[in-house]
Design a protein around this nucleic acid. Structure first.
Lengths: 238, 238
DNA sequence: GCAGTAGTTTGACCTGAATCAATGACGTGT
DNA sequence: ACACGTCATTGATTCAGGTCAAACTACTGC
């Protein structure tokens, strides 16, 4: 596993998409329509997706790898607004004032669907899956606001790790393993912190015996309870 | 205009909702269905909406007044995640980790629709209006992430004013008038700042001759161009 | 009109995270 | 196995914005 290229667990991204959507009662005509409008994208690590004009409102399915949605402020400041892992659907809708780009975190294979078409032309199960996903993204974005606006660096890191455990964690007996596909810079960009602060907070968590780190990307959670505690998701614990 | 109670420009909130949705081709049956599932809420200034269990996923139409969606961190920290003004539709979907409450900014009159029902049972124009609104909310939430994560206090205030001008500004020749329905505390909660910082930044904008303030809630924008400039929405201005 | 109060502004000071600056570790290519 | 470059960690210092404290102002009810 040295060159670490994609190993294609899903030979056909579209098939993977249909598997994940799980829409059993979708007529054949809709399936072929979907297939015709899904544009495959293959991005190298770090590469940005070229989004066409008509894809301003787009549903992007991640078949393999991981990607990030980045908002830009001025020339040098950037803020990661969403991470997107294998099997997830990222909703892009650019009414926004801020310019956004979609970039590959690792080499990845995507399918881009014009969301307008999907919603108006395929009003069956698929559209409802997209609506579901949109609601989920909205929730995540709002949770992100709370995190960015009101949490301390320590709480941000803990919340980040908890959410990564949820999404890509390998749960074992007693411990949970994480292999993060993003750099410290990317973690910082997503939490509104600098690399140094991310590093310092990881060290703090390590010193408290809550996590252990192996190399740059591997982390094991030793004490999930205390980690969650530090993420302060709950309020009014009365 | 002393007691400043609601003056009911829209006697029937449901009629107002239909007017705003503008779905001409909606069958009579759907209209009556919608009318049956819209629960009217009347909140006094500061009051929190009591959301029922089945309203975890809800579309809330604001017929009169203004409201805020607040996320809570621990017992005392709170973050405003969305403001919602007359004629707008707020989408709530609580998959979130963070607890949220909906509170009245001013006395207001709302209609709460269980969003699940709307989307599955009324797949016509109405549902697409809700989907539209969801996309918009998603955009706003992502812009908020960028603002919270990477903008300075000055930029946050400027961005806030620009967005308020968009939504409730009264555009005149040369100047734009704003009458903000929220307190300094609420502005701060929404921008991840304290009241003091909000106040100081308003003073700074006033000293630069960009805005003028009258009393607590009235602001006029004297120089919209310079205000937008300070909001730094654009990047890559090359 | 006046007093009371909540909301706002201003100032002095403090602190958490950013910035600046080295050093150190991983992983890649030769 | 080695050397290079990128990325990560650690330490010293700075600064934007928070906290604390005190005036001040605008709305409220009387």
């Amino acid at each position: 596993m040295k060159p670490k290229s994609l190993n294609h667990p899903h030979a056909d991204p579209f098939q993977h998409f249909m598997d994940v959507l799980r829409s059993p009662d979708l007529p054949e005509s809709s399936i072929s329509f979907l297939q015709s409008c899904g544009r495959p994208l293959h991005l190298a690590r770090g590469e940005a997706a070229e989004l066409r004009e008509q894809e301003q409102r787009t549903a992007i399915f991640v078949s393999e790898g991981a990607a990030k949605l980045v908002g830009h402020v001025g020339a040098d400041r950037e803020q990661i607004v969403a991470f997107c892992f294998e099997g997830e659907l990222l909703i892009l809708s650019v009414t926004s004032h801020t310019p956004y780009t979609l970039q590959a975190l690792t080499e990845c294979r995507l399918l881009a669907f014009p969301a307008g078409d999907l919603i108006t032309k395929v009003t069956e199960a698929t559209s409802s899956a997209i609506v579901e996903r949109t609601f989920l993204a909205l929730d995540q974005a709002r949770d992100a606001s709370v995190l960015l606006g009101r949490k301390t660096a320590q709480e941000k890191l803990a919340s980040f790790l908890v959410s990564m455990v949820d999404r890509i964690g390998v749960v074992g007996p007693k411990i949970i393993a994480l292999d993060l596909p993003m750099s410290r810079r990317e973690i910082g960009d997503c939490l509104g912190l600098t690399i140094e602060t991310v590093s310092r907070q990881l060290t703090a968590l390590r010193n408290h015996g809550i996590i252990k780190t192996y190399g740059r990307s591997k982390i094991t959670i030793l004490d999930m309870a205390r980690l969650s505690e530090r993420a302060v998701q709950a309020s009014c614990t009365t």
